[in-house]
Simulated scan of single mutants.
Amino acid sequence: MNETEQLWDWREKIANLYYQARFNENVTDAWRTWCDTRSKMFRDHPQSPIEAQDRKTYHGPTTFPYDASLRLAVELVPVTADHMTIATGSDGELSMRSFARTTGLDARLGGELTLYWIEGYGGGVFLPFADATSGSETYGGGRYLLDTIKGADLGVVRPDGKLVLDFNFSYFPSCAYSSRYVCPLAPSGNRLAGAVRAGERHPISA
Rank of each mutant, 00 (worst) to 15 (best):
M1L: 06
M1G: 13
N2I: 12
Q6E: 14
W8G: 12
D9F: 11
W10I: 01
Y18R: 05
Q20R: 15
N24T: 14
N24Q: 12
D29C: 12
D29K: 09
D29Q: 10
R32I: 08
W34L: 03
K40N: 09
M41I: 13
F42C: 13
P46N: 04
Q47T: 14
R55M: 15
K56G: 10
T57V: 13
H59V: 14
T62Q: 14
T63E: 04
F64C: 12
P65I: 12
P65N: 11
Y66A: 08
D67Q: 15
D67W: 08
S69V: 05
S69I: 06
L70W: 02
V74E: 04
V74I: 07
V77I: 09
V79S: 08
A81M: 06
M84Y: 05
M84I: 09
T85N: 13
T85G: 08
A87E: 15
E93F: 12
S95V: 13
R97F: 05
R101M: 04
L105T: 01
L105P: 01
D106W: 03
D106Y: 04
Y116Q: 04
Y116F: 12
Y121S: 11
G123E: 04
V125Y: 06
L127G: 02
P128C: 00
A130Q: 01
T133S: 02
S134E: 00
S134L: 01
Y139I: 00
R143I: 00
L145F: 00
D147I: 03
I149T: 07
K150F: 14
G151C: 07
A152K: 05
L154E: 07
V156L: 09
D160V: 05
L165N: 07
Y177E: 15
S178G: 12
S179V: 05
R180I: 06
P184S: 11
L185G: 02
S188G: 07
A195V: 02
V196N: 01
V196S: 01
R197A: 15
G199D: 00
E200W: 00
E200M: 12
R201E: 08
H202D: 06
H202E: 07
H202V: 06
